[in-house]
Each structure stands twice: as C-alpha cells, then as structure tokens.
Write a protein that binds this DNA or RNA. Structure first.
Length: 416
RNA sequence: CGGGAGAUGUCAGAGUGGUCGAAUGUGCCGGUCUUGAAAACCGGUGAGGGUUAUACCUCCGGGAGUUCGAAUCUCCCUCUCCCGGCCA
C-alpha cells in the first residue's frame, strides 16, 4: 500500500513516479479525492461521537444526583440516530478508498530506469561465457524425453495441463538443488525456515497478492485459504502485525516451498516444457530491514543469487527492470537470467525486489526506533527457482549423445 | 469429530455495567549509586487515526446485538488449552 499522506502532500511528485509504472493520472486524482472524503467523514463522525460520550457521562452524574434524565435521554437518542447515518457515510468512504488503494501498485525508486516493458530493461553485466557447442544443442524437453527425466503427459493425467512428473535422476537433482541452495543461503547468514504452504487471505493481502490477483491463486474451496504462489508470502508475513526491536534487524530468512500459480493470463507462452508450470519448487530469500539497511542487503541478495549460479557454472546476466516491467509490490527489481543454449536466449531464473515500505504498510510490520514505531523495508528474491535451474543444467550440461553431465557442486548432494 | 475450560498491554495476571485504555507484578528504556556490572531506588513505557501541538475518536480474539453508557450482559464465529475418538 502506498503512503496516502505522502500522495496528498506531494501529489505532483507522486504522479510523476506513478507514470513510470504506468498508472494513469485519473486514478490518482480519484484516490486523493477518496482520501480527503474519508478524512472529513471521519472528522464529522468523531465529533458527534465525542458529544455523545460527553452526554453519557453526564447521564451517570444525573443518576447519582437523582436528577431527571428524560430530557437528556431524548438528546442522546437524537444524537445516536445522527451517528448511525454518519457512521454509514464514513464506512462507505473507507471501503471506497480501500478498494482503490489496495489495487494501487508501489512507487518505483528514483533510480529505476524509464521504460514500458521488458524490452527496455537494462543489462548490468554478464557473468560467465556461454559454452560453445560443436553440435546443435537441444531444448530441455527433448533432453527430458531422451533421458526419461520428465513426464509431461503423466503430470497432465494426474492433475491437468502444466503439471509434470520428474523421474529418477531428475527427481534426485531437484532435491539436490533445494539442499544446495539452502546450504549456500545459510552460509550467507540466512536463517532456514520451514513454513505452511497454505496461507490465509490476510497474509496474501499483506504481501500484495490480494485483492488484485486473486485469479492467479489456487483457493481452497470453502475456506479462507490459498496455496502460496511463493515463499515470500509466509516468510514475510511471519512478522505480520508485529513490532520488532531495532536490535533484531536485519532479519534474513530462507526457505524452500513449492509454489502454486494459476497464471491465467499466460496462456500461449512457454506452453511446452518446464518453464511455466502451475506447481514449481523455489528457494526464497526474504529480508526484513530498517530503511537504512535495505540498499546494502538488496545488493547482497543479488550477489548471492548470482554466486549460486556461478558455483553451478551457469552463464547468466544481471538485468535491472525498467518502471513498466516492475511487479505490483516492487520499488525496484533486479532479475537474473540464465543462459539457455537450447533456446538460444537468457531466461529469468531469479527476481530480487525491494518493496520498501509497501508490504510493511499492508502487513503492519514495524520496528521500534526510540519511542516511535517505524515501518520496516521488506525484500525478497529467489535463490533460486529450482525447476528452471534444472532446465538450465539440462541445456548447458548436455552432451552430443543427449546425456547430461552433473555439475561438480551437486555431486555430493546426489551421492556421486 | 465429540465433551469441558479459556482468549485482557512483552509476558504473567486483576477487573462482572459508568470515574477503566485498563490495578499489580514482570520485561524494556532512561536516570541515581558503582572503577564496571549486579542489586536497590526514581522516572518513563500498548496500538491505530487525528492535530503544528493539544483536544478528540477507535481498539480488552473477530463480528452482530442489548443499554444513555460494555473489557464487563446476549448471540454467532475463530483460535488456544485439557479429556475422549481418529490418525502420519
């Protein structure tokens, strides 16, 4: 959630920033109006309540002094009726504001490059040279079939399209990758956490998936519960509605979870293979920091994810997202894209974002700075997406006969 | 899933219709004392909104109701603990 007071006081500045993220001015004007309306409705209501409270206290005095209360009662009753109406006005104003405000994306940082979509993202650097093949490298689904690693059709049978089954060595590599990622993250100071894979609506709203992206989530029928689309949800909301001490910050967390996404809007893209599935594994990093700490932690998280790819000897590049490509909650995002020789392009394998106070305001995560309660900064990033790493290993480590070599760092994890 | 008890500030725990945002203890922060620490003593200390700052409003698990007035009474829901059932 954005800071409505900031919006009101610095309207022009805020709208300039929002334009970078593709929010139209009309919506902003409306939002500001709703905020002003709510404030005045509340002021009127509270004034009436103050009068009523005062009269009720008087009532007690009258009773004690055995004075006649019938006149006072009549006045209070009239005031009560007035309050009912005012309350309704205030409630409606509140709902109208929330509806718009909760659907409003985060403001991008000043440093974020201008741009409409992913075409205008900025490559910061490349890490490791892509290997040269003396044969035509295959795409991962072809390799999956040759090696009996992935069964797409049986996954579809068990659930529906975009579910897959990993078999044998592939299943073991999936598990090995999870352990490897968690170990590296732990080395870097992240605490390993195991969380529920099902969270309630309040938590999903805290991190920004609800109410706007309900269609992308798998909901449990008849319950106020959803399958998590990323570990960012449970890890960040671990501290939902809490006030932390400054001493305990920064909090660095890592956890493995499967992720469940409907991605209704993605039909037609990456329909083949493992790139876009309804269920996938991911190891996530989450940081809860003071505003002063978050820049440095953000860099560290990017370095860490890049380091993991380097240890796996997977060529990749570091890309800064432009304003138009930023996600809903992010103030800035850096993606890591891994080289896929079969597809002959770089594909996203990690996304690291600083949401600043955006999620903290929604999830009410604060820390004590002296006497004051201050919103934390929350950051999240993949380290890494497991399924896509498997794909990258398949394509980068393929041999001419279609077999796949195992990366050195994974061998101990696979008992080799 | 069945039976019983409960949900109050960091925690523990009082409060059963008004003067209670809430005793007391504890924790935490600041101070005195001390070479330093501990102990002792003194002071401060819930959250959100609102205001330049006060006023003022809301919150005692959540929601609805009774009442001039609710932490306190009624109803519904959720959660926790104990007993039983079932179970990895």
């Amino acid at each position: 959630m954005i800071d409505l007071k900031y919006l009101q006081k610095n309207f022009d500045e805020a709208s300039a920033k929002f334009i970078k993220k593709g929010v139209d001015a009309q919506t902003l004007v409306r939002l500001e109006e709703l905020f002003v309306t709510l404030k005045s409705a509340n002021a009127t209501l509270e004034e009436a309540k103050a009068e009523q409270n005062k009269m009720s206290k008087l009532f007690g005095e009258y009773m004690r002094e055995k004075k006649d209360v019938s006149e006072l009662k009549a006045k209070v009753d009239a005031k009560k009726e007035e309050i009912v109406g005012l309350q309704e006005v205030a409630r409606e104003a509140q709902e109208a504001l929330e509806k718009v405000a909760l659907a409003m994306p985060n403001l991008p940082d000043d440093s974020v490059p201008e741009g409409k979509d992913e075409e205008e993202n900025v490559e910061l650097r490349k890490v490791l040279e892509p290997r040269t093949f003396d044969f035509e490298p295959k795409e991962h689904w072809a390799l999956a079939e040759l090696n009996g690693w992935i069964e797409f059709d049986r996954g579809v049978k068990l659930a529906k399209s975009r579910f897959a089954v990993l078999r044998g060595e592939a299943a073991r590599m999936e598990r090995a990758l999870i352990n490897f990622f968690l170990d590296v993250n732990r080395e870097k100071g992240f605490e390993e956490v195991y969380v529920p894979f099902i969270n309630n609506a309040t938590m999903l709203q805290g991190t920004g998936q609800l109410p706007k992206f309900e269609d992308d989530l798998f909901k449990i029928e008849g319950e106020d519960l959803y399958l998590i689309p990323t570990a960012e949800v449970p890890l960040t909301n671990l501290y939902n509605d809490e006030i932390l001490t400054q001493k305990e910050l920064p909090i660095l967390l890592t956890g493995y979870t499967p992720c469940f996404r409907k991605e209704a809007g993605s039909a037609g893209r990456d329909t083949r293979g493992m790139i876009r599935q309804h269920q996938f594994d991911k190891v996530e990093m989450v940081a809860i920091t003071t505003p002063e700490q978050s820049e440095a932690i953000f860099k560290m998280m990017v370095e860490n994810a890049s380091d993991i790819l380097t240890r796996l000897e997977l060529p990749h590049r570091v890309v800064e997202l432009c304003g138009g490509d930023l996600g809903f909650s992010a103030a800035m995002t850096i993606d890591l894209e891994v080289w896929l020789p079969g597809q002959n392009k770089y594909r996203e394998i990690s996304s690291i974002s600083n949401t600043r106070e955006f999620q903290a305001r929604r999830a009410k995560i604060r820390y004590k700075e002296g006497k004051k309660n201050v919103l934390v900064n929350t950051l999240n990033g993949s380290a890494l997406a497991v399924g896509r790493t498997l794909v990258a290993i398949m394509e980068n480590y393929q041999n001419e006969d279609g077999t796949i070599s195992i990366p050195e760092v994974l061998k101990p994890y696979m008992g080799l």
